[in-house]
């Protein structure tokens, strides 16, 4: 039979009573995220050569790339921030920032029910050097592009 007078939580509770609260008052007090934390995928439209490797390798199929229309799009609500696209990008157009993605509201839902968080980049004027030598073949055009 355990001794009913032994209350091992009491010293701990008393210490908690006088010590500083453990709570981080989040919206008013933001701790910077650690360097190397995985947050949001960032895209640089200028360097992209539309090789489509990121779209093919994305496990969540969050990236859609159109070589013909020269658009690169990501669904921020689907992206799982695994970092595969950043690893495979031969042009270093993709990078991982430490910031968390923003919260979206129902007011941002499109008229046909498109989910928010769709981000699209378009490079309108294709420079001649940017077009991969073998158009239409889904292979990385790294060696030819550079």
């Amino acid at each position: 039979m355990p001794n009913p007078l032994k209350l091992p939580m009491i010293p701990r509770a008393l210490r908690n009573l006088v010590s500083k609260p453990a709570t981080r008052r989040y919206p008013f007090e933001i701790r910077p995220r650690f360097a190397g934390a995985r947050g949001t995928i960032e895209f640089d439209v200028e360097t992209c050569n539309y090789c489509m490797l990121c779209a093919r390798r994305c496990p969540a199929a969050a990236i859609t790339v159109s070589r013909e229309e020269r658009t690169w799009a990501i669904e921020q609500l689907t992206c799982i921030a695994c970092g595969v696209c950043v690893d495979v990008c031969s042009k270093h157009s993709l990078s991982m920032s430490v910031n968390s993605r923003a919260v979206h509201l129902r007011s941002e839902v499109g008229p046909q029910g498109q989910r928010p968080g769709h981000e699209e980049w378009h490079k309108p004027a294709p420079a001649a050097t940017d077009i991969p030598a073998v158009a239409g073949v889904p292979a990385p055009a790294a060696s030819q592009g550079a």
Partner: peptide, 8 residues
């Protein structure tokens, strides 16, 4: 851990 082990 002591709390888990000894608390009646």
């Amino acid at each position: 851990a002591r709390v888990f082990g000894t608390d009646p």
